[in-house]
């Protein structure tokens, strides 16, 4: 293994320990209200930011195709049309058609 790659892998591992392991192994003492807030409000905030982030990132590659195909997927998910498989298929197919036409 080269030194640069070992350093890089060590940085990734340390990152994982910091952002994923530390919050669950260290017994942080939070007030009950904050714990309830983290269990109910925070996940919704994370998912809303996921959506904004993915739309904006993909629109940097192909604005119209990403907007239409991800929008279609979001609508299919909201209306529960065809489940995850059909939603993903619809999104990918429309993206492919829009980017190759």
């Amino acid at each position: 293994m080269s030194e640069g790659v070992i350093t890089g892998i060590a940085a990734l591992l340390f990152t994982s320990l910091l952002v994923r392991v530390l919050p669950v192994v260290y017994n942080f003492k939070f007030p009950e209200g904050l714990v309830k807030w983290m269990e109910t409000i925070l996940p919704s905030a994370v998912f809303l930011n996921f959506i904004a982030y993915i739309f904006l990132q993909e629109m940097r590659v192909s604005a119209v195709a990403a907007l239409v195909s991800l929008g279609l997927t979001a609508i299919m998910a909201y209306l529960n049309l065809g489940g995850l498989f059909m939603g993903v298929l619809g999104g990918c197919m429309s993206y492919y058609l829009l980017t190759t036409s």
């Binding site: 109910t40 993915i54 991800l70 979001a74």
Partner: peptide, 17 residues
């Protein structure tokens, strides 16, 4: 495709929550 999956799962989660 991974972005599409995340959008689908996120919308489903938000709708439920």
């Amino acid at each position: 495709p991974a972005s599409v999956v995340l959008v689908h799962l996120s919308v489903s989660q938000i709708k439920m929550r």
